[in-house]
Design a protein around this nucleic acid. Sequence first.
DNA 1: CTGAAAGCGCTTACAG
DNA 2: CTGAAAGCGCTTACAG
Lengths: 334, 334
Amino acid sequence: MLADVAAEAGVSTTTASYILNGRAAQMRIAPETDQRVRAAAARLGYRPNRSARSLRTRRTATIGLVSDQIAGEQYGSSMLTGASLAARELDHVVVMGESGGDPELERLLLEEMRERDVDGVVYATRTARTIHLPDALRGVRSVLLNCEARDERYAAVLPDDEGGGRAAAATLVAAGVSDVWVVGEDPTPEATAGPRRMAGIRAGLAQAGLDLAGVVACDWSVTEGFAATSRWLARGVRAEGLVCMNDRVAMGVYQALAEAGLRVPDDVSVVSFDGSAIAGWLRPVLTSVQLPFTELGALAVRRLLDPDDHGGTDSVPMAVRHGGSVRTARGGTA
Amino acid sequence: MLADVAAEAGVSTTTASYILNGRAAQMRIAPETDQRVRAAAARLGYRPNRSARSLRTRRTATIGLVSDQIAGEQYGSSMLTGASLAARELDHVVVMGESGGDPELERLLLEEMRERDVDGVVYATRTARTIHLPDALRGVRSVLLNCEARDERYAAVLPDDEGGGRAAAATLVAAGVSDVWVVGEDPTPEATAGPRRMAGIRAGLAQAGLDLAGVVACDWSVTEGFAATSRWLARGVRAEGLVCMNDRVAMGVYQALAEAGLRVPDDVSVVSFDGSAIAGWLRPVLTSVQLPFTELGALAVRRLLDPDDHGGTDSVPMAVRHGGSVRTARGGTA
DNA sequence: CTGAAAGCGCTTACAG
DNA sequence: CTGAAAGCGCTTACAG
C-alpha cells in the first residue's frame, strides 16, 4: 500500500501520492524525492487499491457496456473488441452485461453499474435501430452504440447506412449495370439499417438517372434469401444487378442463382452489406459494404470518455470491400 | 448512503447494515426494526456504494475475463454470453479485457484486474489449446476457459473434443458408411481440438471394426477446405463419408463437391464440428457436432466462484446436431 | 517543498 | 437486540 511506499522512501503518504499520480511537478516536489519514491514503489511492486481510490474520487476508471446481445452476434461482437481496446488506451476497463433483451434484467444491470460508480455506460444493440431510452440510463453519462433515441437528441454512434447504400449503388453503376433489384426488407419496424440502405441505394441510382427496378422481400437470413430469390427467379424475372441487404441474404442468393444455373458475376452482379466473414467464403468473393463494428465500439467509448463531446449522432462511414461478384464495365470481373 | 437509511429508520448504521445484508436473523434483530429499515431503504432508493464495501471486505463481486480474442471470434464470442449470464446469476459482474495475443498487454490487463481486486479471473483462449500459464495469473484465483495448462494441474474447462470425434464417427457408422476420410488438420502445434477429434474419430471407427480411409490436410478455413478437397477430388479419390474438422472446412467441402457434381448426402455423407450458424446455412443443412460455447463460459464462471471447486479439467460434452448431410442407412437422408 | 489529518461509505469486532 | 467506534487505503484541502 501507499503507506509502505512512503515509509520505504521516508516521505509522507501525501508526497508519495502526489508523485505517483504525476502531480510532482505541479507540487514542485524535489526531483530527488521523486526518484526515491518511484524507486520505492517499483521495489515494493506497488499497485494502488482501486476501491480506496474510487471511494475518495468517485471515479472508477471503469465503464459499463450493456447490450441486448452483442456477444452472441456473429460479427457484431467486434464492437466489444473495439470498445475494450479503446477503453484500454484511455486507461479504463469495461464491465459488460447482456440482458438478452429482457428489460428487467437490463434495468438490474444498469443499476448494478451505477452502484459500482462506472464513469459512464455504453448502451449497445445488436442491430441498428431506434430505441426508447431506458429510464435507468438517465442521469448516467452514456453513449448509444448502434442505436439512436427516438424523439430526442442523445450521444449516439451508428454506421452510415445511407452512405453505404449510395456506395453499393455506385459500385453497380460504375460497372455499367442499370437494371438493379434489391433483395431483403426489414422485418422489424424499429430497425433503421434497411430503410437507410434503401434510401441510399435509390439516391445512388438516381444520381445516375436510374430507378430501382424492384424489390424482393425477405427476412435477412440465408434460408429466406434463398427461398425468396428462388421464387423470384421462378417467376421468370431477371436482373443485371442485385443489392442484398446483408451477407446472409447474399449467401442465399448465391445458392438460388447457382441452382438456377446463373453465374456470378457473368450473369448477375451482386453487392451486399456487412463485409462479414461470409463475404470471403463465397465463390466468387462477395463485394460487400463493410459495417465498421470495431470502429463503432471504439468511437462510442472515446466519446463517452471525452468531456467535450458534442452529444449528437455520429455516422461512421461504410467502405466497399471489393470481391469478385460485380462484373467490370467491359464484362469481366472487378 | 447507509447513514441516511439508518437515520430515516431511527437505527444505527450497524443495524441497518446487518439488515440490508441479510444478517438480521443471525443478529436476532426485531422483525419490526427489520421492516422499518427495509422500508426506509426502499423509500430512499438506497444503493450501497460498492467501492466502500470492497475497501472493507476486499471482495468486489467482480470477476475478470481476459482472453486473446474471443469477442472477435464469430461464434466463440458466446463464451462471453455464458460467462456474463452465469456471473449475473451469482450476483457478480464481469470486466473483460482482450489482449489480441500481445503478452505485454495481457500482463497489463491481468495486473489491472488485480488492482481492482477482482474475486477471480477466467482466462480464455479463442481456440482450444494448451498454454503456458501466464505468470500474472499465479496467485490469482482463476479458471482456464477453452485451454489447459501444460505440465500442471489447473482448473480448466474445455469441450470434450474426443467424445465429439467419437460421436461424429458413430453418426457415419450408424448410416452404414464404412469408407471415411477426414478433411482438415491442425495448423498450430498447441491446438488441441484437432488431435483430440481425430483420436475420437479413430476410436469411434475402431469400435465398428473400421479404419480411417485417409486424411485430406488443410487449414481450417473455407477457402482451404475448398482448395484441398478440389485437389483431392481431382486425384480421383472418392469416399462415402467425410468428417470435416469444422464447419468452415465443411463449407469449402460443399463447394468442391458441388463443382465436381457430387451431391450431399446422396453421393457423399458429410459430418462436421462446431455446430455454428454456418451449418444451418448450407444446403442441405450440415450435420455438425456442437461446440457448447455458452455452457463453457458459464461453467468456467461457476467453477471460479465455487469455493469447493475440485481444480482439474472439466470436459463439456459435444452433442450432434443433425442436419441432412448424412445419408440414412437405407440410402435416404437423415 | 512536505506533512498531519480528515474523510470517502461501508463492515464488523466489541461492548452493553 | 442495538450502537459507538475503528479501520479498509486512498486523496486532498490546509497549514507550515
